[in-house]
Nucleic acid binder design. Structure first.
Length: 252
DNA sequence: ATGTCATCTTAGAGATGA
């Protein structure tokens, strides 16, 4: 089975990149983030034509997440208690429980949005209490957290910034400690499997990126291979994130 | 690193968020 996660930075702006990517990469399940699209306006038809069922959550201008699945969408959930923004979509997709997350950015450590980010991560951990860590489950998406110093191009450039603070990392570690592994992907280029590069200042071509798009999986998900699809970050009108593609077996 | 991109408002440049 092949699964993937991709922050597309607007499904509308990216549809003509997404559709051929789905055909070429042929994932069975895809988690999307930053669709920036109301659920009712989601482009279901061309995606369904490729064999996917669609679960979309979105209010319009900001945020928005989705799951595309060739293995069904059972028990769909699109809310996280206490947090009305469209940042979570979850469903049982065949043998695998899948959650697509778009964790709040946090802006700066002294911004109220940073507290919101920590609260949101804590709520995601609370939600996990309703699941069994011995069952096949993945949480994947844009976590807006670089778990280790090596997950940014230069930790010194992040003094006073979000994405690398101990509290944010603890929020992600609490998920891992419940019973998830942080799947390590082969990098597309260079030594670090970065998944995001700012559009500005030639950051992508200098490989000044961050690993903030994560796939967290329980132990009954066996990882065969995982890679960052750097090609998808190239070319005409790319997202600022690259997809992470993971080939798995499921031990049932 | 601060060099871009996407969206909305409301008619074309500015505000917002990332």
């Amino acid at each position: 089975m092949r699964i993937a996660t991709w922050n597309v930075n607007s499904i509308g702006a990216r549809l003509l990149r997404l559709l051929p990517w789905l055909e070429e990469t042929a994932p069975d399940i895809v988690a999307l983030q930053e669709t920036k699209c109301a659920a009712g306006a989601f482009p279901n038809l061309p995606i369904e034509a490729l064999g996917y069922e669609v679960l979309a959550a979105g209010d319009g201008r900001w945020n928005g997440v989705a799951i595309l699945s060739k293995l069904g969408v059972m028990d769909p959930v699109t809310d996280l208690p206490g947090h009305p923004e469209a940042r979570l979509a979850a469903a049982q997709c065949g043998p695998l429980h899948v959650t697509s997350v778009y964790v709040p950015n946090g802006r700066t450590p002294d911004d109220p949005h940073y507290i919101y980010k920590l609260d949101w991560l804590a709520s995601l951990r609370t939600r996990l209490a309703g699941f069994d860590p011995t069952q096949p489950l993945v949480i994947m998406g844009d976590f807006n957290v670089a778990p280790a110093d090596d997950d940014v191009w230069d930790i010194r450039a992040f003094a006073g910034s979000t994405h690398v603070t101990p509290a944010e990392r603890a929020g992600v570690r609490a998920l891992v400690d419940w019973g998830l592994k942080d799947v390590s992907a082969r990098p597309g280029k260079g030594e670090h499997p970065f998944t995001y590069w700012d559009y500005r200042a030639g950051m992508f071509h200098k490989d000044l990126g961050m690993r903030i798009d994560l796939v967290l999986a329980t132990d009954s998900v066996t990882v065969i291979d995982a890679y960052v699809d750097r090609q998808a970050r190239k070319g005409k009108l790319p997202s600022d994130h690259a997809p992470v593609v993971v080939d798995i077996d499921i031990d049932i």
